[in-house]
């Protein structure tokens, strides 16, 4: 069982982020860390390989600079190797270009399953994984809360608004993992120290053989999100419960 896990290295969210005033892209020149939402896919992949009794977990990532510290975190959790596509020409790539690059990087090694988070915490387009599946010409199952593999068949509990669907499809396939559905392991200190010597193939775009990549999407302007309107204050004069019930009925919670 060989699993490719797409992971993104993002600016540390404890440091206030900045947008480039010219391109409106997020500035990524500082230290990058592993996107927390990717740690669930890494954890699931490690468990699946473990259950299958063998195989490798390969991390697939893309960054405009050669930053690897976020990748090292996932290697310290137990992933075996990483492929990092690093090329200055990728700065400001749109979702489709990103998907093309990731798909080309995934193809370099044999894989049974591709895993990704449903969306990244910094970009939030949520479109890259299904595009990757389309380019690789494999089925994709999004919003997985549980993933099992039986006799070469992928069985997924796919989260919906009211519960979950049970979905099956043949391998190879791509799964996006919902955040919070597994408990990502902490990297052990031995893992952290071993991660230093795990292989990270750093490639530029030319080495991928994708041909020329052009980003056709442009961020024209950025506006601050509207401030949330303040909520309704219910003062309890003996009938507050009625108002609360009416409110909950109105929004169809009860």
């Amino acid at each position: 069982m060989n699993i490719a896990v797409c992971v993104k290295q993002i600016p540390d969210q404890s440091v206030p982020g900045k947008l480039d005033p010219g391109t409106h892209n997020l500035v990524r020149d500082g230290k990058l860390i592993l996107d927390d939402s990717d740690s669930y896919g890494v954890e699931m992949a490690l468990q699946l390989v473990d259950r299958a009794g063998g195989g490798e977990v390969t991390l697939i990532s893309m960054a405009p600079n050669g930053e690897v510290s976020g990748i090292r975190t996932a290697l310290a959790m137990g992933a075996d190797r990483a492929v990092l596509v690093s090329d200055p020409s990728l700065a400001g790539s749109d979702a489709l270009t990103t998907a093309k690059v990731l798909a080309a990087a995934i193809r370099r090694n044999p894989f049974d399953l591709v895993m990704a988070a449903t969306e990244s915490t910094d970009g939030y387009t949520g479109t890259v994984p299904v595009q990757v599946a389309e380019i690789l010409d494999i089925p994709s199952v999004s919003f997985a809360k549980k993933v099992e593999i039986e006799n070469g068949i992928l069985k997924v509990q796919r989260q919906t608004e009211s519960g979950y669907d049970e979905v099956e499809c043949p391998l190879p396939a791509l799964v996006t993992v919902t955040a919070g559905v597994v408990e990502p392991r902490y990297p052990s200190f031995k893992g952290i120290m071993a991660a230093k010597s795990k292989p990270v193939d750093v490639l530029d775009v030319a080495a991928l053989g994708t041909g020329p990549l052009t980003t056709s999407q442009e961020i024209v302007s950025v506006r601050a999100a509207e401030e949330r309107a303040s909520g309704t204050v219910v003062v309890d004069e003996g009938d507050a419960f009625r108002q609360v019930v009416e409110f909950l009925e109105a929004i169809k919670v009860i």
């Binding site: 230290k31 090292r72 902490y186 200190f189 952290i192």
Partner: peptide
């Protein structure tokens, strides 16, 4: 942070989260 190695930062961050 500038005085620490990547490995030291990583170990610190694991314990901090824990």
């Amino acid at each position: 942070d500038g005085l620490l190695t990547d490995e030291e930062r990583e170990i610190r961050s694991v314990i901090r989260k824990y």
